[in-house]
Structure formats: C-alpha cells, structure tokens
C-alpha cells in the first residue's frame, strides 16, 4: 500500500469513529423548546420526537436561564448536525479514494 493510501485509510477509520461519536452526541440532545402564542399569552413546550410522532410537552412558566440553556442546546445541535454531514461527506470521499487499485 502506498503512503497516501495508508494515510487515507487511517483518516477513514478516524472519520468512522467520529461519525459514531457525533451521532451519540446528537441523540443525547432530546427535544427543543417551542414557544406557542395562544391568545395574548406565550406558552412554552418541549417538542420531542417519540417514534413517528412529535409530542409537545408543556413546560409551564420558565425562567430566562432555562430559555438560554435550551437556545444554547439548539445551537450545539445545529452545529453537530452540520459537522455530522461533513463527516459523512468525508467518509464517502475517503471510501471512493480508497477504492482505486493502483498504489499511490
């Protein structure tokens, strides 16, 4: 095996590990805070997927701190999802590069 292919193989292993870890991190973040305006008032719910359905769990009055924590969680989730998509692209690219037969 050539030097480049050896490096690519190692990078593929790293990416596969990374994919698993990002998927675990995404799975840890459960639900996101939703604000519903009913009449003149706003009510907060935790939107959570349970199987095929999305359930809205009423959270009652919540403090600004909790709101901020959920917002941060949402940002992290979006970031992880974006990076997860990068990792998937990398895996696809690396697998394609490694499929070649010639020694690089």
């Amino acid at each position: 095996m050539g030097v480049i292919k050896g490096v690519l193989k190692e990078e593929l292993e790293n990416s596969l590990d990374m994919l698993k870890r990002y998927q675990e991190e995404v799975a840890k973040i459960k639900g996101c805070l939703i604000r519903k305006k009913i009449g003149k008032n706003c009510y907060y719910y935790l939107a959570r997927r349970q199987g095929k359905k999305v359930r809205f769990i009423y959270k009652g009055p919540i403090s600004d701190e909790i709101k901020k924590a959920y917002a941060k969680q949402r940002q992290t989730l979006n970031k992880y999802k974006k990076l997860l998509s990068h990792v998937k692209k990398q895996i696809k690219f690396l697998r394609r590069a490694l499929r070649g037969k010639e020694t690089v």
């Binding site: 790293n14 990416s15 590990d17 990374m18 870890r21 990002y22 991190e25 940002q75 992290t76 970031k79 992880y80 974006k82 990076l83 990068h86 990792v87 990398q90």
Partner: peptide
C-alpha cells in the same frame, strides 16, 4: 473549544482524551 464543535473522545482502555472535529483531532 466546545462551540467550534469539538467533542471529547476517550481512546483505548486507559481513556486517553482526544478532541475531535471533522477537520482536526
């Protein structure tokens, strides 16, 4: 480095810490 998207990985049975990101480890 958390907001950059780095996640902690514990490698091997001894638990070596690596900080992983799709671009850098």
């Amino acid at each position: 480095l958390e907001d950059l998207g780095f996640i902690i990985i514990f490698k091997g049975s001894k638990g070596y810490i690596k900080l992983e990101h799709p671009y850098l480890i």
